[in-house]
């Protein structure tokens, strides 16, 4: 039994790390060559906006201490969420908001395409990891707390898969579950269907970037419930279950999602089928 739980933790760690590696291949590459990094010339760009503010730190409240004018070149040093650390012509180092240097030119005169994790990016690259917490909403173990970790990959903008492992805790039982889920998101599916049409129609409006996207989830896996001595009528060991859920994701920030769902489980226990319902709320981040 512990093995199941620990497998999930390992899977979580593994997926987190592999997603991390695949998403930041370029960056990791640099890390691995740290000694050479100092000698490597950073990316140089020409500013085409009227001006770029340089802040003392990577946050909206840090004071502006220098302004770079149109036509000057800057060097990009590092990237943090929403911010870039840059060095000016005259050697000043500071932080600038990603959106402020989104319009810059490479030395070749070609506009640069700096990486920003956006909605579109999310739907394209599909790794995401997160955790959820919730409660069982029916039956003998109503009110039992649950907690799960998940790691997923999204091959298509509207279709995702995820591995999930979780625990159930109450005074009557303690349990574990793990499984594979498939998520279908109708809104991005709608976009995917309209996209080919929009390409032909010059007057077509830009497709909406959905902030709130509902989803349907189907899953299957194994579940165990170990009953405490005074509640022997409950409990089963590594029984198969299937489940489905209705939920919605909301984009708190561009790479950060809050997610809520209501899930129905059907567990084939030794004697009969146990029906469980669970609501959960979670946070996920994607790469």
């Amino acid at each position: 039994m512990p093995r199941l739980y620990l497998t999930t933790i390992s899977v979580f760690c593994l997926s987190l790390l592999s997603s991390l590696a695949s998403a930041d291949q370029v960056a990791s590459h640099q890390d691995s060559q740290a000694p050479q990094a100092a000698t490597k010339t950073p990316m140089k760009l020409e500013v085409i906006d009227p001006y770029v503010d340089m802040h003392t730190g990577p946050g909206r409240g840090y004071p502006v201490f220098h302004v770079i004018e149109q036509g000057e070149t800057i060097e990009i040093l590092t990237r943090r969420p929403d911010w870039y650390e840059i060095r000016s012509n005259n050697g000043k180092t500071g932080w600038t908001k990603a959106s402020q240097i989104s319009r810059t030119l490479q030395p070749t005169g070609v506009p640069v395409d700096l990486p920003t994790v956006g909605h579109g990016d999310y739907l394209r690259n599909g790794w995401r990891v997160g955790f959820t917490g919730g409660q069982i909403a029916n039956g003998d173990i109503k009110g039992a707390d649950t907690f799960s970790v998940n790691a997923g990959y999204r091959p298509l903008s509207w279709l995702g898969t995820e591995l999930e492992g979780g625990k159930i805790y109450s005074t009557k039982v303690s349990g574990e579950y793990y499984g594979l889920n498939v998520l279908i998101e109708p809104f991005p599916l709608w976009n995917a269907l309209l996209e080919p049409l929009a390409r032909w129609d010059i007057n077509a409006k830009a497709l909406p970037n959905w902030k709130l996207t509902p989803y349907l989830l189907f899953g299957a896996g194994k579940m165990s419930l170990d009953a405490q001595p005074q509640h022997t009528e409950l409990g089963f060991d590594r029984s198969s279950h299937y489940n489905y859920a209705l939920g919605a994701s909301y984009y708190l920030a561009r790479n950060f999602v809050i997610r809520g769902e209501y899930r129905w489980y059907s567990v084939s226990a030794t004697d009969d089928t146990v029906k469980l319902e669970e609501w959960k709320i979670g946070f996920s981040t994607f790469f």
């Binding site: 930041d24 370029v26 960056a27 640099q30 890390d31 990094a37 490597k40 950073p42 990316m43 990009i76 040093l77 590092t78 990237r79 943090r80 969420p81 870039y84 395409d113 700096l114 990486p115």
Partner: peptide
């Protein structure tokens, strides 16, 4: 895209 930019996430 993003070549040579170090990230600190």
């Amino acid at each position: 895209k993003g070549a040579g930019i170090d990230t600190e996430f």
